[in-house]
């Protein structure tokens, strides 16, 4: 992302391990998925105010996410379980703007994950590609 600070990179790394974990039935995760170039490319392409929303969301999660644990510690410095608890709280919030922070941030990882050729093959998605419609 444009002007990505070291702290934002750390937040992204901490988020990736929760949102696209290794293992499980889809055998790819944050170590295999090249999410950073995607985030940089997407952020460069979207309008400036959307780019600032992305920055704001990362800032909010990094510094205010811990409020859901009732203690003060930056998100990127928390353990995996605590980070997952925070994200579950954001996701389950009845305030859409809070939930929206989770949804938009998770999209930064889930889009590159599920548009990855290996992942699409793993989940059996053979949708429209190269002008050929594969109706099964």
């Amino acid at each position: 992302m444009n002007n990505l600070t070291p702290r934002e990179k750390a937040t992204l790394e901490a988020l990736a391990a929760c949102i696209i974990p290794e293992g499980g039935p889809v055998p790819f995760g944050f170590k295999e998925i090249n999410y950073l170039p995607f985030i940089e490319e997407m952020a460069a392409a979207v309008p400036a105010h959307i780019r600032w929303v992305i920055h704001f969301n990362l800032w909010f999660i990094e510094y205010f996410g811990c409020l859901y644990l009732h203690r003060l510690k930056a998100f990127s410095k928390l353990g995996l379980n605590d980070r997952e608890l925070i994200l579950l709280s954001l996701r389950g919030s009845k305030r859409f703007l809070i939930r929206g922070i989770y949804i938009l941030t998770s999209a930064l990882f889930l889009i590159p994950m599920y548009k990855d050729e290996s992942v699409m093959n793993a989940i059996g998605y053979t949708g429209f590609k190269n002008g050929v419609n594969k109706i099964t």
């Binding site: 929760c18 499980g24 997952e84 999209a107 994950m113 599920y114 548009k115 992942v119 998605y125």
Partner: peptide
């Protein structure tokens, strides 16, 4: 929806 879009509309996280 294609998987890249549906994935963040599903009610779950991580594993």
């Amino acid at each position: 929806l294609p998987p890249a879009i549906l994935s963040f509309a599903l009610p779950a996280l991580g594993r």
